[in-house]
Design a binder for these strands. Structure first.
Length: 827
RNA sequence: GCGAGAGUGGCGAAACUGGUAGACGCACUGGACUUAGGAUCCAGCCCGUCAUAGACGGAUGGGGGUUCGAAUCCCCCCUCUCGCACCA
């Protein structure tokens, strides 16, 4: 063991050793209790950033801890390797997306290895490998057969920048989730996954995920957006047919005085056709359509609309309701049409005021009388029904049920549940993705590629186009094919799948990455899944996590797996920031992991990222803090280097009276630290776990020079240093191995069992009891642990510091908390 | 607007079920060792008052409450962060 801690000297050495010994290889051994630990796999963008480092450092603590705890740990790593940046980079650097991607994977893998993460690299997978996506294509076909995949023409979100369609979840405040460019609406035909078929189950299971952060659960519930209400049909005044609306407030139906359709609603142009309003309606619809999403969803968007020149009939009142189209009604939600009740909905109120549409109050708040003529805003609360003849006097909550019954009875409406969740649009007009395995035949129509013809290989002999458009549609060798049914000439689908499809099942594939008979091998899948602990960024709270949950249920229903949910426990870690701001190239505040590793080593980098903040909080990267972590490791090193000359394998007595006081205290501190670190790792409080080890080290520094070199001391030092190496090993594995070896151990520290604290060792001889008078701290007493309550009370009252405060006062009562405190209450 | 969360020293943060507020680290200050130190070791480090040891008082965004006792529980308010956002 060298005198000076030199990470460069030891880190590579141990990384090679772990690799040679295959220490992190998970065995598919059903006889052992498993622990599947997973961190979100990275997109191979070029190099790791600090967010990755933090994410994977957190995961590695848990993985190594669980290994030492005797679990059969699966801790895999792979690459979310399809995606747009590869295409952009390929253009910029005149390379091929595949080459760019695989080069990046190579480099980032070397970075992960330099960090010493405990991955089972034998299970590595990249989603752009045919061996991976061919199974995705098979799953697609099976979903198609089950009606979970369908093709439709729809108004979709189009990202100009990315030249592709985006799913609803991928639009954030009107902008693209990746490039933050503006998103337009565009009518396009594409493929959809019927995720809405699982809306109810996805929602229901939100409450069966106690291991998930509440925040994420709330976001998912919110996104699914279930609302319970009714569908009501409003017959058209002229001609046949009716407009159906969805409402959650059927209790206000008697107050519905007009109807509003979304500008995109197909009836809008149909209804105004040939009327004098037609031109105005057309220009309004055009105007709204030109407004982009950002404008349309802006905070103070003025409510505007136009009359279609025709009316419909309120099915319960018979009232003639003018039909409008307006910018505040969304085609995406409900039926794209609303019944407007200006008295009890603020938006309808504003609209009615602006266009002078009549209002009728139908709910009176308790102890108040609303008048439609003088109201200044809608009343949305509960109350008593009025102006709704059969229901007048009824509580509106009851009326909701009663009116729903009445509608069903009369056949003009029905109870209905509506979800905000839309089907998942998965067609991407991009090259670097998994081809959608579909063939179009002029005679036979849409044909899925037969199983035996899979995979549809993404051709690599293409050049990306300057325009960003996919080269696939122009690639005759790809497009031209034969119809699997009639053998005639046919065309291949040239869209590729959303890359979120790959990441929706990769965690399952890790259980059997080499399986070649199907996407997943039952036995291994069932052994390892579900993931016991998943760790990643909060930015995936909806997108990736919702899709993965959906996919898991789909696979279950195909009888591929028997579990309902993919991730039992979820930890969402905070961002890594510098000076309070997110790291970004434009701000120039990026901290480069390579630079950190080079200057301080992997262990210091890991230690700081774990110590500076608890995992869920944002972490401010501070050079001074990194120095502090580096200093601590040097301090540990020097300690072991010095004390290793005074060790003995001889077991020492465990009975307190057989050890001198100072040695006993060291032993007690060691065992208290074991307890604290163990508990803190279990609850992911890594920062306080590390603080506890620092305390131990401080304690040893303060006492070591006073301790005589005796055989007893030597065996206590032995236990102390061994514990230190063991406790540090999940956090800073390289130095821990080196210290462990320095203590004469020949087998890796990770093979050693995690230390257990001894109950007798942490037992206190004396207890610090706090004495309060009227809740104010007055004295601290060291009391023998064996003392009885009566004795402690007496000693508390006898304390001079206490006496001073109770003198001349009557003691009303004393509160006694065993082993903690005495509170004397006096007048 | 709806939903979730957070406000504690100069800074990052501790305090598990109410029971010593500020562990641990950073920064800072002083001392020791030293030719030197930005190395290392030791010590100090919330604010105020009393000249001191020490004592007393105040302090966990603000205000109220429950309690012998509140950073922690309840109510009101303020600020910030995140998510959704004309959701019918």
């Amino acid at each position: 063991m060298r005198e000076r801690y030199d990470p460069e000297q030891i880190e590579g050495k141990w990384q090679r050793s772990w690799e040679q010994e295959k220490l992190f290889q998970a065995s598919d051994d059903p006889g052992r209790k498993k622990h599947y630990l997973l961190e979100m796999f990275p997109y191979p963008s070029g190099k790791l950033h600090m967010g990755h480092i933090r994410n994977y450092s957190i995961g590695d603590v848990v993985a190594r801890y669980k290994m030492m705890r005797g679990y059969n740990v699966l801790h895999p790593m792979g690459w979310d390797a399809f995606g747009m940046p590869a295409e952009n980079a390929a253009l910029e650097n005149e390379t091929h997306p595949a080459k760019w991607t695989y080069d990046n994977i190579g480099y980032m893998k070397s970075q992960l290895k330099r960090m010493g993460f405990s991955y089972d690299w034998d299970r590595e997978l990249a989603t752009c490998d045919v061996d991976y996506y061919k199974w995705e294509q098979l799953i697609f076909i099976k979903m198609y057969e089950r009606g979970l995949v369908y093709r439709k023409k729809a108004l979709v979100n189009w990202c100009q920048e990315c030249q592709t369609v985006l799913a609803n979840e991928q639009v954030e405040a009107g902008r693209c989730w990746r490039c933050h460019g503006e998103v337009d609406k565009k009518e396009l035909e594409g493929w959809f996954f019927r995720i809405t078929a699982y809306a109810e189950e996805l929602l229901e299971y939100c409450d069966k995920l106690p291991g998930w952060p509440e925040k994420v659960i709330a976001m998912q519930k919110n996104w699914i957006g279930k609302s319970i209400g009714a569908e009501i049909d409003f017959p058209l005044e002229d001609g046949d047919g009716a407009i159906t609306v969805f409402t959650t407030r059927q209790d206000t139906l008697y107050g519905a005085t007009f109807m509003v359709l979304a500008p995109e609603h197909p009836l809008v142009l149909e209804l105004c056709k040939g009327r004098r309003e037609e031109a105005e309606v057309r220009s309004f619809v055009e105007k709204v359509r030109r407004q982009d999403l950002i404008m349309r969803t802006a905070e103070e968007m003025e409510k505007e609309g136009v009359f279609l020149g025709t009316r419909c009939i309120n099915p319960l009142t018979g009232r003639r309701m003018p039909i409008y189209t307006a910018n505040f009604v969304l085609m995406e939600y409900g039926t794209g049409a609303i019944m407007a009740v200006p008295t009890h909905d603020q938006r309808d109120f504003e609209f009615a005021k602006k266009y002078r549409i009549p209002m009728i109050v139908v709910i009176q708040p308790p102890g108040e009388e609303l008048d439609q003529a003088t109201m200044t805003g809608a009343y949305t609360g509960d109350g008593i029904m009025v102006n709704s003849p059969p229901f007048d006097g009824m509580d509106n909550r009851q009326a909701m049920e009663a009116i729903a019954d009445y509608l069903e009875e009369k056949g003009v409406g029905r109870r209905a549940v509506n979800y905000r969740l839309r089907d998942w649009q998965i067609s991407r007009q991009r090259y670097w993705g998994a081809p959608i395995p579909i063939i179009y035949c002029d005679h036979c129509g849409v044909q899925p590629v037969p199983e035996e013809d899979l995979p549809v290989v993404l051709p690599l002999d293409v050049e990306p186009k300057e325009s960003g458009r996919s080269p696939l549609p122009d690639l005759r060798s790809f497009v031209e094919t034969t119809c699997p049914r009639c053998r005639g000439l046919a065309r291949r689908e040239t869209d590729t799948m959303d890359t979120f499809v790959e990441s929706s099942w990769y965690f399952s594939r890790f259980t059997c990455p080499d399986y070649d008979q199907g996407p997943l091998e039952r036995e291994r899948l069932e052994y390892w899944m579900p993931v016991d602990q998943y760790i990643g960024g909060i930015e995936h709270a909806i997108l990736h996590l919702l899709y993965s949950r959906f996919y898991t249920k789909v696979l279950r229903d195909m009888d591929i797996g028997s579990f309902d949910e993919p991730f039992i426990n979820l930890l969402t870690q905070g961002m890594v920031i510098t000076d309070g701001a997110k790291m970004s190239k434009s701000k120039g505040n990026i901290v480069d992991p390579d630079d950190m590793i080079e200057r301080y080593g992997a262990d210091t980098t890991r230690l700081f990222s774990l110590f500076a903040a608890p995992p869920e909080k944002d972490l401010d990267w501070k050079e001074e803090g990194v120095e502090g972590s580096y200093r601590f490791l040097h301090r540990v090193w020097r300690l072991v280097h010095e004390l290793r000359n005074y060790l003995s394998e001889q077991p020492h007595p465990k009975v307190r009276s057989d050890l001198p006081r100072d040695l006993w205290e060291i032993r007690q501190k060691v065992h208290k630290t074991i307890k604290k670190v163990t508990e803190d790792i279990e609850r992911f409080h890594f920062n306080t776990a590390i603080a506890a080890v620092m305390e131990l080290v401080n304690h040893i520094y303060q006492t070591k020079d006073e301790i005589e070199d005796t055989p007893l001391a030597r065996s206590v030092w032995q236990e102390t240093l061994e514990s230190l190496a063991l406790l540090l090993s999940p956090f800073v594995p390289h130095i821990a191995e080196e210290l462990w070896e320095g203590l004469g151990k020949e087998v890796s520290v990770i093979k050693a069992p995690w230390p257990e604290y001894e109950r007798e060792a942490i037992a206190e001889e004396e207890i610090l009891v706090v004495v309060q008078v009227n809740g104010k701290l007055r004295d601290r007493l060291l009391i023998p642990a064996s003392a009885e309550e009566q004795e402690i009370r007496e000693r508390a009252l006898a304390s001079p510091k206490v006496k001073r405060h109770i003198e001349g006062k009557a003691v009303k009562k004393t509160i006694f908390v065993p082993k903690k405190l005495v509170n004397i209450v006096c007048a």
